Amino acid sequence: MSSSKPIRKAVFPVAGLGTRFLPATKAIPKELLPIVDRPLIQYAVDEAREAGIEQMIFVTGRGKTAIVEHFDVAYELETTMESRGKDLSVLDPTRAVPGDIITVRQQVPLGLGHAIWCARAIVGDEPFAIMLPDELMVARKGGGSGCMAQMVEAYDKVGGNLISVLEVPEDEVSSYGVIDPGAQDGALTEVKGLVEKPPRDQAPSNKIVSGRYILQPEVMRILEDQEKGAGGEIQLTDAMARMIGDQAFHAVTFDGRRFDCGSKTGFVEATLALALEREDMGAQVREIAETLLRD
Rank of each mutant, 00 (worst) to 15 (best):
E69K: 14
I214K: 06
I102R: 15
D46S: 13
E224Q: 14
D72V: 00
G124T: 09
G245P: 09
A44P: 08
V138Q: 02
C147P: 08
M1G: 11
D134R: 04
G159E: 06
A187R: 12
E31C: 04
R49S: 10
Q106I: 05
G113I: 03
A10N: 03
Q284V: 13
Y155S: 01
R221S: 14
Q184D: 00
K26C: 00
H70K: 13
M148C: 08
V178S: 03
V285T: 11
R257L: 11
L215A: 11
I41Y: 05
T253C: 09
E277C: 02
N206K: 11
R62E: 11
I102F: 12
A289S: 09
G99M: 10
K26W: 00
T80Q: 15
R257P: 01
T265G: 10
K207M: 14
F254S: 06
T291N: 15
M148G: 11
P98S: 09
S175M: 04
D72T: 08
V191S: 07
V36D: 10
C261L: 04
E218T: 13
D238E: 14
S210Q: 01
V165S: 04
G146T: 11
K197M: 10
V168D: 00
I163V: 15
V178I: 06
G245V: 08
I102Y: 11
E290K: 13
S2F: 05
A230Q: 04
A74R: 14
G111W: 11
V104D: 08
K192Y: 00
P34R: 13
I208P: 03
V14W: 02
R294S: 15
A27I: 07
F128L: 06
A251K: 08
P23K: 00
D238N: 14
F12A: 07
G182S: 08
G159W: 08
E287V: 02
S2N: 13
I163M: 11
Q150I: 05
V158E: 06
K5R: 14
V285G: 00
G85K: 03
E287A: 15
L32G: 04
D171A: 05
C261R: 02
